[in-house]
Computed example of a mutant assay.
Amino acid sequence: MQAEQKREMVKALQAKINAMQGFGKMPEEPVTDGLMPFSSAFPGNVFPTGAIHEFISYEPVEAASTSGFISALAGSFMKPGSLCLWIAKEKMIFPPALKQFGIEPDRMIFIKVLKPKDTLWTIEEALKCEALTAVIGEVKELGFTESRRLQLAVEQSGVTAFIHRFRPFAENATACTARWKITPLASSPEEGLPGLGHSCWDVQLLKVRNGSPHSWPVTWAGGCFRPLVEKQFSAQTQHARNAG
Rank of each mutant, 00 (worst) to 15 (best):
L73R: 02
F42S: 05
G22H: 01
A88I: 07
D33N: 03
W121L: 04
G211D: 08
W121V: 03
P43T: 07
F55K: 08
H239W: 04
T32D: 06
R167N: 12
G195D: 15
F38K: 08
G50Q: 10
C176E: 10
R149N: 07
H53I: 05
A240R: 15
F233C: 09
G34F: 09
V229N: 14
A161L: 06
K91T: 08
T183K: 08
D202I: 01
R241N: 08
L152T: 10
F77N: 02
I56H: 12
F225K: 03
D33Q: 05
F225Q: 04
Q151R: 06
T160G: 14
A173F: 07
W201C: 09
R107E: 12
D106T: 12
K79C: 06
W180I: 11
S57C: 12
E125F: 00
S187F: 08
Q14M: 14
I136L: 13
I182G: 03
P37Q: 01
P80F: 02
E155Q: 15
P105C: 03
G223A: 05
L193I: 12
E190T: 12
A12T: 09
K181R: 14
R226S: 14
I70T: 04
E124Y: 06
L13D: 02
G143T: 10
G158C: 10
T177H: 06
A64F: 03
Q232A: 15
P105S: 11
P30W: 02
A15S: 14
G102H: 06
G34Y: 01
N172Y: 07
G195Q: 08
S188C: 06
F101G: 03
K91V: 15
P27H: 07
G50L: 09
G137P: 02
K117G: 00
M108T: 01
G197R: 06
F42N: 01
A186I: 13
W180Y: 12
G102Y: 05
T219Q: 14
Q5S: 07
A178W: 04
L205Q: 08
V10F: 11
S234K: 15
F47M: 03
E104I: 10
G75V: 05
G211L: 09
A235W: 05
G75L: 01
R226P: 07
S215L: 05
N45F: 12
F42Y: 15
G211Y: 11
I87Q: 00
Q236K: 04
G244Q: 04
G158T: 14
S188Y: 07
F101T: 01
N172S: 15
V135K: 09
D118C: 00
E146Q: 14
F233G: 00
G192R: 09
V31N: 05
A63G: 07
A175K: 00
E28W: 07
F233A: 15
V203Q: 08
P194R: 07
A19Y: 01
G195E: 14
I56N: 10
Q2M: 08
R179E: 11
W86K: 00
F225E: 01
L142V: 06
H53E: 01
R179S: 14
K115E: 06
A64Q: 13
E141G: 13
F225H: 03
F101H: 03
